[in-house]
Each structure stands twice: as C-alpha cells, then as structure tokens.
Amino acid sequence: MQMPSPQPVSAPVNTAGADPFVRIEAVTKRFGSFTAVDDVSLSIYKGEIFGLLGGSGCGKTTLLRMLAGFEDPTSGRIWLDGQDMTGVPPYERPVNMMFQSYALFPHMTVEKNVAYGLKHERMTDAQRKDRVREMLDLVQLTQFAHRKPHQISGGQRQRVALARALARAPKLLLLDEPLAALDKKLREHTQFELMNIQSQTGVTFVVVTHDQEEAMTLSDRIAVMDKGQVRQIGTPNDVYEYPNSRFVAGFIGSITTFEATVRKIEGQNAILDVPAMGGVKIGRSVPGLTEGEKVTLALRPEKIRLGRERPDDPNSFSGVVSGLGYLGKDSLYRIALPDGQIVTVNSVNARRVGEDERVADWEDQVWLSFDPTSAILLRN
C-alpha cells in the first residue's frame, strides 16, 4: 500500500495560564474490593493530545470509561469545559470514543458507517451528507466511500472509525489503544496522520496506550499510571529525561540502574561512589541530596559511549561484550561488568561498515563512559 508522506504537525499546546478543559478531581473507582483507579487528579487542556500510559491493569482504560460516562466514579468528580459530569449519561456528554476494535458495521459502506453517528442529530439530509463528505475528506477516504470495511486496509478502517467519532463534532475524543491493530510501519505513519487530523479539528484527544513510543510520539503530555495511580505527568521529554521514580525510569524506554552513595556535593554535581562501576563517578545533582545518602544512578543506552580504548574521563568503566544485536540504524550491545551486572548500550550506525569494522565484537573488552548530565539520579 502506497502511503502519502506525513505532513508537518503543529507545536504542542501552550498550557501556561490556561484553565483546564478536563479536570479530574480525586477520582477513585472500586469494583468490589478491587481499586482500579486510586485517588487520581489531573488536568487536561483544550486542544491537547493527552496520553494515558501504563501496563495492563493499571487503570487507564477505567479512567477513560469514566470520562466517557460508561462508568461512574466511586468518589471524586470529573469536570468537562466547566460542567460537572456527575450523573450525566454518555449520550448527553460532548464526548465520543473510538474503540480499539473500531466497531465498524461490516454490512455498511464506509460512507454509511461515518453517517451512522449522525442519524439522531438535528440536521437535514443535505447537511448530513455534507458532514460525512467533510469527514471523509479529512481522513482522505473520499474515494473509498462506497466500499465496505472488508474491502479496505486496516489503516483505512482505523481512519473510518476516527471519521465516525469526529462526525458529531465532540469537544473531547477518547481513543482506546487506537493503533494496536496496525503493523509497526503503518502504526508509525498513522501516528502522524492522527496528529495532523487533531491539529486540523482542534478537538481535545485523550489517548490510552501501553506503547511507550506511541505515547511519546502522539502526546503533548503524558500521565504514567501504575496500580491505579498516576506516577508522573509531563511532556514526553520530562518523563523520559527526568523521571521521578525508579518505576517511571524503567517503564519509559530502556535503562540500566546502579546502586550509589553520595560522597559530597560540588556545585551542580554529585560525587558518587558506584561499586559496580569500580569507584567514584560524577552525576548532575538533584534538589535535596545529602552526603551519605543512598541513591540510584540510571543511564539510558543511547547516553553511554562505547569504545575499545580507555578514555580520559572520570566517568569511564570497563566490561566485556556478552551480547550483540544488529538493528540496522543502530547496534545494541550488552556489556557484562566485573560484578556480573549487564549494561545495555546503543551505538548508532552512522555509516555503513562490515562486520569486521564494528565498534566491538563478542567477548571484546570495552570501555564505557557518560557525561554527568546524562546520569539520572533517583532518590531511594
């Protein structure tokens, strides 16, 4: 299938000084003795793509269903555009939901699927036809209007479901794992299509996903959830570069952690004793650190330099290559340290080389190093 090149997407929404469009206040949802959502409070702003990210059972879909009105909070309140949603049924909320399965009617054409949500709207037949045409134009499916769902691709079915969800002009669109059924290449392309459509319509999106890369690509801001609670809220850059806990650091992307002790603080840096690295290392300090405190030093694979020669760098340490994977755009190295700990390192393949020209090979002794600013220090 030939896919058009993605168009540029707009910059993230500026939330400075803005009033929240969606306000979730101390919301808890229990099913019997099980707490699915535990005292969650967060704000979502108009025109944002807001991601709810977490593993299975973390409470993200339950929170989405409460926004839609399919579930009622056990306690707490949800506000939408200044209106308290308590007791407001789903069909009276200015909200629509796009399900993971797309839920298209197989016996209806693309056009009729999109029109289905408008059947109870107060509009003339001509207005309804114009709205359907507008939606099909928006998702670039006008030429497929008379086909049935089984006659179009998975990515096109996804866009039909999106067009149907947007046809009623909701103030808030909820998307539950919207790209899960697509293959990797199509999923990556469709992420940018979704961003462009959201930019054109201005509708606020809340996207539930377990896919970290999807959340990082799509979202203006992300709420990372675990065991019914929000562990961190921030931009993709915030949660990746400045995680606030071991859980968030480990859940977003790959990371290697080391036990460390703070020897002293020197300006912006913390001097650390890191036994697994063979001694003293330097990391950028964080507020509140004190001498003698136990901390976790965390390093992303792409932040670590790899070479055969020992660098003139206080943050260097050695190991042996115990695993190697060639991924095309980069190579993934697993380095075993003297104490047995494994460090994962990504080396970008910036130029085409043969196997005998790799940075390192199996069983090679290598040296690793990192900048103090690349070290993520997490207080235990």
Rank of each mutant, 00 (worst) to 15 (best):
D339Q: 00
I376S: 07
T201L: 13
I49G: 00
N349W: 04
A165D: 01
L179S: 15
M277L: 07
E214W: 14
L136R: 10
G32D: 05
V359K: 09
Q191F: 15
G87W: 05
A360Y: 06
R284C: 15
K184T: 10
S245A: 04
F34E: 05
K46E: 13
Y91P: 00
Q127Y: 08
N244S: 07
R300N: 13
L141C: 10
S369N: 10
Q151C: 04
L138D: 11
I252T: 12
I197Y: 01
M277I: 01
H146K: 11
C58G: 05
D137M: 10
D313V: 10
F144Q: 09
F144T: 04
V37H: 00
L174N: 13
S153A: 07
F70S: 03
V320Q: 08
Q341K: 10
P311S: 04
M66E: 03
Y116G: 01
V95G: 14
E71T: 07
G51E: 06
G17I: 11
V248R: 06
Q229G: 05
A115D: 01
D84S: 14
V110E: 04
G202M: 06
A249P: 15
P243E: 09
S285D: 10
V280G: 00
K112N: 07
L141A: 10
D72W: 02
R168V: 14
T86E: 11
V9H: 15
A103Y: 03
S101L: 03
D38M: 01
G202Y: 08
Q200I: 07
T209A: 15
L67N: 14
P90S: 15
L186T: 11
K227V: 08
L272E: 12
K303Q: 08
Q140H: 11
L218M: 12
Q156D: 02
I342G: 00
E134W: 06
E214D: 13
N380I: 02
M1N: 05
T86L: 06
A167D: 05
M1A: 10
I44Y: 12
G288Q: 02
I78M: 11
G54M: 09
F258E: 02
Y242E: 11
D137F: 00
Y326H: 14
